[in-house]
Amino acid sequence: MASNPLQLLPSELIDRCIGSKIWVIMKGDKELVGTLRGRVLKPGPDRPVRSGLDQVTDREITAEGRRITKLDQILLNGNNIAILVPGGSPDPE
């Protein structure tokens, strides 16, 4: 088992989260919590770096006055993702 965390690439870390809870913090006051179902790597001529599209189930927490929207299943655009936190949000709600 390669267990030295320093040798784990960031993308491998995300791959390990597939099937478990994840907390997605977006640019600009949006957050989502849900179960990561997979991700899309999109190499393209105009995008040398992949843009991850993460498919997340369940709920969205929007911090614009804390509006909460619950969603069954979504395909999330990776463009505005700032941080991914494995294990979900500390917020119990």
Binding site: L71, D72, I74, L76, N77, N79
Partner: peptide, 11 residues
């Protein structure tokens, strides 16, 4: 597509 944040199923 560049404007899209997410696509969700609707119940």
């Amino acid at each position: 597509g560049n404007n899209v944040l997410y696509i969700s199923t609707s119940k």
